[in-house]
Design a protein around this nucleic acid. Structure first.
Length: 328
DNA sequence: AAGACGAAAGTGGTTGA
DNA sequence: TCAACAACTTTCGTCTT
């Protein structure tokens, strides 16, 4: 019972959002919500994962459905990718009240003072300044890579955690932001190539890789092994291939995994080669160069994987030349 | 001419002594 | 710390369609 009360090292987990991570203590995934206490507790070892959770439910009671409908709350949802979670007050620069009337001179000087302090207080600590900068970099990077909102929010959460662990010390904000985004994509099974993320940010691939590994080690985040199948959808749509080709590609990848062809191989190259084979099989041929470009590997790698695939899966080249047929 | 193929040399990361 | 190693890249010449 005593164990239930201890919160890990003064750390605060995200409040009011779903934590996608396992328990840092036992790695368990069964998280129990204790709504009366406002706590999130690991069902495996009893560690309190977060306390002071925000009750997002209504604070009023309604006794009829009309009453329930007539009461509501408005406002933007909490967003972790905005440094103050979108909660801060904004004082307009216009000297007008809500209905557009001009303010009296005394009122105006009062608002002027309020505005000044509001701006001063918004970014008050070094941590907030860091967050503000990091979150704008995150937005820039994520929109350049076309990464959807939920993954950005997860990246923001990872960044907030790494700030708590003081990982940014001695590293560039850009590198850590890029690393959190890369990790978030992989956690949500929408992996991007390390190259791709490094290109979009001003961070070298090496730095990015170092930051990423540090992130995993320190935050104890479990990232699923990168699976070539996860790349198929994106590559296929970039190459304008039909869903038939996608399905065939996935089938080929499953079979090649059974043959042990995937061990130690770059998943990007595997996905590329499988797409190449499937595109020929289903008569939607794309060139090795085009596929290699999309997958960010070289044609040589596509060729090598393709050769292995054809050899081990017993796919034969028909006398006609370019058409391939599987032997099941 | 474009695309595919293959050889050779070079690169960065991992492993084991 | 260093050498060996596997996987991958780059480059370039040749063959095929």
């Amino acid at each position: 019972m005593e164990r239930m009360r201890e919160s890990k090292g003064g750390e605060r987990y995200n409040h009011g959002t779903t934590d996608p991570m396992n328990c840092p203590e036992c790695g368990g995934v069964s998280v129990v919500e204790d709504t009366t206490r406002g706590e999130q507790v690991c069902g495996g070892c009893g560690l309190v994962l977060s306390d002071h959770r925000i009750d997002t439910g209504a604070e009023w009671r309604a006794f009829s459905s009309e009453e329930s409908d007539s009461r509501s709350r408005v406002g933007a949802p909490l967003r972790l990718s905005v440094h103050d979670k979108g909660l801060s007050t904004v004082i307009d620069w216009r000297d007008q009240d809500i209905s557009g009337r001009r303010l009296s001179p005394t009122r105006r000087s009062e608002i002027y003072r309020l505005r000044k302090w509001q701006i001063r207080s918004r970014v008050h600590s070094s941590m907030d300044r860091n967050l503000a900068q990091a979150m704008s970099e995150l937005e820039r990077l994520a929109s350049q890579l076309g990464i959807p909102r939920p993954i950005r929010e997860l990246a923001a959460l990872l960044y907030r955690k790494s700030l708590l662990y003081k990982l940014v010390r001695g590293r560039s904000i850009e590198a850590l932001v890029a690393a959190t985004l890369y990790a978030a994509c992989r956690i949500r099974l929408k992996p991007r190539a390390l190259d791709e993320v490094a290109d979009a940010s001003r961070v070298s691939k090496k730095k990015l890789g170092q930051c990423y590994r540090l992130l995993l080690r320190t935050l104890n985040v479990k990232v699923p092994l990168s699976n070539p199948v996860d790349y198929v959808g994106r590559f296929a749509s970039e190459l304008d291939l039909s869903s038939r080709v996608q399905l065939r590609t996935i089938e080929l990848l499953h079979r090649s995994r059974d043959f042990g062809l995937t061990i130690g191989r770059d998943p990007l190259g595997l996905a590329a080669a499988a797409i190449y084979v499937a595109s020929i099989m289903l008569d939607e041929r794309r060139t090795q160069r085009a596929i290699a470009q999309v997958a960010r590997v070289t044609e040589v790698t596509v060729r090598n994987r393709y050769k292995e695939l054809v050899l081990k899966l017993g796919i034969t080249t028909a006398p006609g030349g370019s058409s391939l047929s599987g032997s099941n």
